[in-house]
């Protein structure tokens, strides 16, 4: 039995766990530079996590087991998602256990439990965050799946490894369906990862926060797990975009190819961070009820991609 795929799998999970905070640090650094502030450095997120892990947990009196269980399940699904997306190699054992639809569903599990945790304490903010998060998710998920369906129709498979191989081999052909799907994917990723213009990860202003409102009551290691999982989610979405639409340099089995894939991944993430910061700096946060149009247009893009797949290709 070839042990290499398992080694690649473990390595990939560890790498995602390790570089996710650095990616967030990179995004924050870029943002500071663009806004003319001094930065806290690439490694500030690591220090934040260390601090949170070291602190005691403070729980509200009426917190139930759901409140304490949720950080772990959110972290667990994020880690599994990190093992599914073929970033270093297409030959991953976990990649066969879940395809693109399962990946979307994994993020849905995390969201489901986070929303429940938001309602567990019984404060107005938690419920507000849960309600808004589920609203946005129910608009974003169809658009996300449509974008993924377009890619998987083009590739003839929903398996991520297979999509990567097909898109990679046919890269010279410019496919309009993939271009539309990519645009839709970008818009949806902003919503799914809670970035401007949908949500602002740095705000704690009562009426504008969405994701943060659900985590408001968390502290200590629970909060650290949430933060870490959130960082991984952001990194994974960027990596997923890079893997699905720009799959250059993903290895197919050898160690050197995987090493090269790692370098490519870092470069692609760096570029994705720049794009993300440009979008975030250029736009303002939208009102909640304007998001229908935003996500509607994402859905429209994905639909156009699917139509152009059938008409043009």
């Amino acid at each position: 039995m070839n042990l290499y795929p398992f080694a690649a799998e473990m390595l990939q999970i560890l790498i995602i766990l390790a570089i996710a905070p650095a990616f967030v640090g990179w995004v924050r650094m870029l943002k500071c530079w663009l806004q003319g502030r001094t930065t806290a450095g690439l490694f500030q997120p690591y220090r934040d996590l260390m601090k949170l892990f070291a602190k005691d947990v403070i729980l509200a009196e009426n917190a139930s087991w759901i409140f304490r269980f949720t950080p772990y399940i959110v972290f667990g699904t994020a880690t599994l998602a990190g093992g599914i997306i073929p970033m270093l190699s297409v030959d991953l054992p976990l990649a066969a256990s879940a395809d693109a639809i399962v990946l979307v569903a994994l993020f849905a599990i995390a969201r489901f439990f986070t929303s429940l945790a938001g309602m567990d304490i019984g404060t107005a903010f938690g419920g507000m965050g849960s309600s808004r998060e589920m609203t946005i998710a129910s608009l974003a998920e169809p658009a996300m799946l449509m974008a993924i369906f377009t890619v998987s129709l083009a590739a003839g498979s929903t398996s991520l490894s297979q999509i990567v191989q097909v898109v990679f081999s046919g890269q010279s052909v410019l496919r309009p369906s993939l271009a539309f799907a990519f645009l839709a994917f970008v818009l949806v990723s902003l919503a799914e990862t809670g970035r401007i213009p949908v949500d602002n990860p740095t705000t704690h202003l009562e009426l504008t926060m969405i994701h943060e409102a659900m985590l408001l009551e968390y502290s200590g290691r629970h909060l650290a797990l949430f933060e870490w999982a959130g960082m991984m989610k952001l990194t994974l979405f960027m990596a997923l975009g890079a893997v699905l639409f720009f799959p250059w340099g993903i290895g197919t089995g050898s160690i050197i190819a995987s090493g090269l894939a790692f370098v490519f991944l870092l470069l692609k993430l760096a570029a994705a961070g720049i794009v993300l910061v440009l979008i975030e700096t250029g736009l303002a946060k939208m009102r909640l009820f304007r998001l229908t149009e935003f996500l509607g247009s994402a859905f429209l893009m994905a639909t156009l991609g699917m139509l152009s797949f059938f008409i043009l290709e």
């Binding site: 019984g122 849960s130 589920m134 608009l139």
Partner: peptide
């Protein structure tokens, strides 16, 4: 398939509400 995806997402919202309001909070 898009409509089915919408259904699945909305039913998650629906049951977060059902469970959250009935069993969680005060």
């Amino acid at each position: 398939a898009a409509l089915l995806a919408l259904t699945a997402a909305l039913s998650a919202a629906c049951f977060v509400k059902a469970f959250g309001v009935t069993f969680l909070g005060q």
